[in-house]
Nucleic acid binder design. Structure first.
Lengths: 144, 144
DNA sequence: GAATAGAGTAACATTTGTAGTTACATTAAG
DNA sequence: CTTAATGTAACTACAAATGTTACTCTATTC
């Protein structure tokens, strides 16, 4: 299983909420757009709520909506909300510390992954939910 | 399973080969340093050979060695050799195309992942195996 | 206040990728 | 000819992610 789809689905969820313009959207409606189970959506929304990106209203006629304007939500916020500790492959990696190489490589790899992660996050930080929303509408007009 | 450890192990393998200074190193010896099975090592070396980063010598007294100098091997080369198609979570993601959002989000996400990937690969390209090798030796002297 | 619709969450099942392992054919050195 | 190694295929075991069911709690509406 090469990675998960939490980030992708989360962006979809938030794009959908932006599209629905502040209405209280039930998880079942979002699930229909994503083609998955409402519980999967609610699980992700639970993480997004902890990060204060969305808010929920319980009870009948309840649902979810964005907690801020799409211009104030960066995709890095989303990424960090649903990928708390992105382990790039160092979890099941425990080399032989009695070997000179094995003893040092783990620290070196941590440094490498830190830089790679920073490079990726820098790009995510530059994209805002408003950009996604704009692309969503722009396509119909042929613009980008 | 949050990601695999192919890249991490591959860097370890190449660092080990650099450390052994061109000798023909059998997979069992590398496996001892990584703390895994020789077959796991040979599988990765098979990918690294296809990318022309290492070469093998068969038969008794055979083994693996680097195909170029450590200064000529970037970690991006390694990454691309063992992670041919890094699917960032779009493999099991197939939204409902009958929904306006679901119909467009996949293309938008592809664009986002492409940029994020580029940011990460840019950092990997800046690190060479020679840098890893240097850090391997530098630690003993307290330098960086 | 009863019915309804939805959030919140636990528990379980299913699927799938990864790593580990065994086995065996092939190759080259001594 | 023996030995030690690569090269692979096949299988097992494991862990993570997702899908699913079921249930409690909460708010709205009639």
């Amino acid at each position: 299983m090469t990675g998960n789809s939490r980030f992708a689905v989360s962006v979809h969820i938030l794009a959908y909420l932006a599209y629905r313009q502040g209405a209280a959207v039930p998880s079942a409606e979002i699930a229909a757009s994503v083609s998955t189970n409402p519980v999967v959506i609610r699980r992700l929304l639970s993480s997004l709520m902890k990060a204060r990106l969305v808010k929920a209203q319980k009870g009948a006629t309840g649902g979810f909506s964005l907690a801020s304007a799409p211009a104030n939500i960066s995709l890095l916020d989303v990424y960090r909300a649903v990928e708390p500790n992105p382990s790039h492959g160092l979890n099941r990696f425990s080399p032989n510390h009695r070997c000179p190489v094995g003893a040092k490589i783990e620290t070196i790899l941590h440094g490498i992954f830190f830089k790679a992660q920073a490079g990726m996050e820098g790009e995510l930080a530059r994209v805002r939910l408003a950009d996604v929303e704009q692309q969503l509408h722009a396509v119909c007009t042929g613009r980008r």
